[in-house]
Amino acid sequence: MPDLFEIIFKPEFGFTVIRVVVPILFAALGAYIASSAGIGNIAMEGTMLMAAFVGTICSAIFQNPWIGLMCAVLSGVLMSLILTYFTLVLKTNNILGGIALNLFASSFTVFLLFIVTGSKGTSATLGAKTLPKIDIPILKDIPVLGTIFSGHNVLVYIMFAAVILVYFLMYQTPLGLRIKAVGKDEHAAESVGININRIKTIALVLSGVLASLGGVYMSMGYLSFFSKNMTNGRGFIGLAAAAMGHGNIWMVTITSFLFGAFDALANALALYALPSEIIITIPYVAVFGAIVIYSIFEWRNRRARGEE
């Protein structure tokens, strides 16, 4: 049995946590905005997968990673607009609509992958571009901090910026206030002249943009190609983190990092002789356990308030 402390208290472990938290945290931020507006965006997973595909394919076509990134974000916006159209205009149940979109994305990306590459597994043969890694001057020379925070993919730094930006959006701007107002009580929000559908559309589109950034990281940062179902439940882990953050962006961020740490732990343990089939379940067991514990706390709170 490897020494757990030896694994965790190494700067490299911190580096890995950041490396694996990116898709989870982007998804969590997106889910946080959508759920603040009162809509669960279950299509997170599918949006990420679609963006992962579109990003890497477009970067290969245009031989430019930034165009790939832009196309990926556009695909995220498009997925969100489809979900918005069905939930807000045609009144499809948002959970059912999200499930349908996820299923669609998981096979449609394979369909397109086959059309483009002739393979149903990965796009590795395409020679796609990846987004650059960035060494932060000064920071990179500081012993422990440098190892943890420097030399990451550019999307890692965009992720940290996104946390701050989402914080400002939700806590410091009128739009953020409106999003929260719509989520808390849409009739009250409507009575003071807020256009509910517009606010919800904006929230869903923002969540689609964030999801697509998480998705594109998978194929243009974490790996350098697209592979079938590569998001592997990370969108849902993000949803869980957002749910447990309980409308507080810092809690959402911390929970995401917690899940990222378990993901990194699984990665580290996979190097040892433990059965890898069991190791790969660690992040999912962690999310399962965490959301159960969270709901027990909530339940006790409700009981203490006499609601149950």
Partner: peptide, 16 residues
Amino acid sequence: KFKTDELVTSLMMNSI
């Protein structure tokens, strides 16, 4: 018992 979100738990259970 606790109103735990069954969408999340069931999806995690699939992977487990």
